[in-house]
Design a protein around this nucleic acid. Structure first.
Lengths: 137, 137
DNA sequence: CGGCATCCGTAGCCATCGCTACAATTCACA
DNA sequence: TGTGAATTGTAGCGATGGCTACGGATGCCG
């Protein structure tokens, strides 16, 4: 119990920063997916993708541009920076592993798709590695 | 890809409401744990537990009282309502299953403890059932 | 090339969860 | 009992992410 006090700042990392990072991962992954599927990514594409208003997307896109994850200009399409593309690749890979893993342990596909969206942001490299090992066995 | 548009409101349930619910689960679980360990739960106990200021705890406790999950009075200890205790029991059980499951697939205990904190809130009943099946096999 | 539909930005509201600074209450102990 | 330390509440700030309402930009098509 004592050592909890030191570790809780890590265990309960449900902080603003962590949450903002989840959003960043979701957004770069979505941008990559949308560009891959349709050639370009607009604010409205993201609004439809996440089922939020274009205003919310617009503000988040602006923030992520400030974090050097994506690039856009007013009334123009959105593209990823090198850093954003890297994050998107990692997020996509991790997402697929988590999804496949859930299916592998017997979760139905639809449930696995929903749960993996929430779970993926909390899977550390070590847990991801364990899931990978499980999948290749 | 088409059907994504309908499902995204479910898939990306990273909404205010969902996030607030995660907080509620963490808090009732913590209150139950603290009362179980020390007999009573005070604002400062929760502040230490989550490594946040007492102000943050105080505001959240007030909100959760409004949601009928816990009961307190100014400068008094915090206890759970029937509904809060029920949520705490479920959260604790789910937490333990996720933790045991991560360890079972080969994640070290410390990493499993960290990851399970984040993951547990996104594990549906079906996924939880799959984890339980895995553990009893 | 003008006008209208669509897309996007801005203004401004709310809720949640962080914080510091300060005020109020409680409680133990002198 | 009174007083000081510990605890808790309040005021007020910032960041993030929801929203509606409205205005400006773009671009297509007659």
């Amino acid at each position: 119990m004592q050592e909890d006090k030191k570790q809780n700042s890590v265990r309960f990392s449900r902080t603003r920063k962590h949450h903002a990072n989840e959003t960043a991962e979701d957004y770069v992954e979505a941008v990559a997916e949308i560009i891959d599927a349709s050639g370009e990514c607009r604010v409205l594409d993201l609004a439809k993708y996440f089922d939020v208003s274009h205003v919310t997307v617009s503000r988040i896109v602006k923030r992520l541009q400030g974090e050097d994850l994506l690039v856009t200009r007013p009334y123009r399409p959105i593209s990823l920076t090198k850093q954003g593309a890297k994050m998107a690749r990692y997020a996509k890979q991790r997402h697929e592993i988590v999804l496949d893993f859930l299916v592998a342990i017997g979760v139905d596909t639809q449930t696995a798709e929903i749960d993996s969206e929430g779970i993926e942001h909390h899977v550390s490299a070590k847990t991801l590695a364990a899931m990978k090992r499980f999948l290749t066995k």
